[in-house]
């Protein structure tokens, strides 16, 4: 394990904490992606990656923060930028994708989606939430 030589000074409690967050984060990401490959329809699949982007990312960001803070003996918090960034951007991408999917399904007249459209909604324009 030569590659881990920089972690010699890490106390055991910090190692356990880092390992816990790593396992939780990567495990949740894996579960999310398993769901993503197993769920049957697109609108169900869109829920699965949020597991990876909420606590999957959160866990690994926490692990990295604890690891570098304990090693450097000063607060290293720049990883939290990734957490904030992912939290803010994921809803935007998911919303845009879901609206694109809705638009495509409606344009094709897909029955399970069309049934949910309220009657006075313009069918052609996707620019509703703007």
């Amino acid at each position: 394990m030569n590659i881990m030589d920089h972690a010699v000074d890490l106390p055991v409690w910090a190692a356990i904490l880092v390992s816990f967050f790593l396992v939780v984060g990567s495990g949740l990401t894996l579960i999310g992606t398993i769901g993503f490959s197993r769920l049957p329809s697109f609108y169900e699949r869109i829920h699965a990656p949020t597991l990876g982007t909420s606590w999957g990312t959160g866990g690994i960001v926490m692990a990295s923060m604890i690891f570098f803070t304990v090693l450097a003996t000063r607060p290293v918090i720049h990883e939290i930028l990734i957490g904030i960034f992912v939290t803010v951007t994921t809803p935007v991408t998911l919303m845009l994708l879901a609206r694109a999917a809705l638009h495509r399904d409606r344009a094709e007249g897909n029955p399970d989606v069309l049934a949910e459209v309220s009657p006075d909604e313009p069918k052609s324009g996707p620019a509703l939430g703007e």
Binding site: M1, M4, A7, V8, L10, P11, V12, A14, A15, I16, V18, S19, F20, L22, V23, G25, S26, G27, T29, L30, G32, T33, I34, G52, I60
Partner: peptide, 19 residues
């Protein structure tokens, strides 16, 4: 602490690779 970290890091990398 190196052993604990090595095991959990490998686990995390394998999980993410499968994902």
């Amino acid at each position: 602490s190196q052993t604990i970290l090595a095991v959990s890091l490998t686990f995390a990398q394998v999980c993410l690779a499968i994902a």
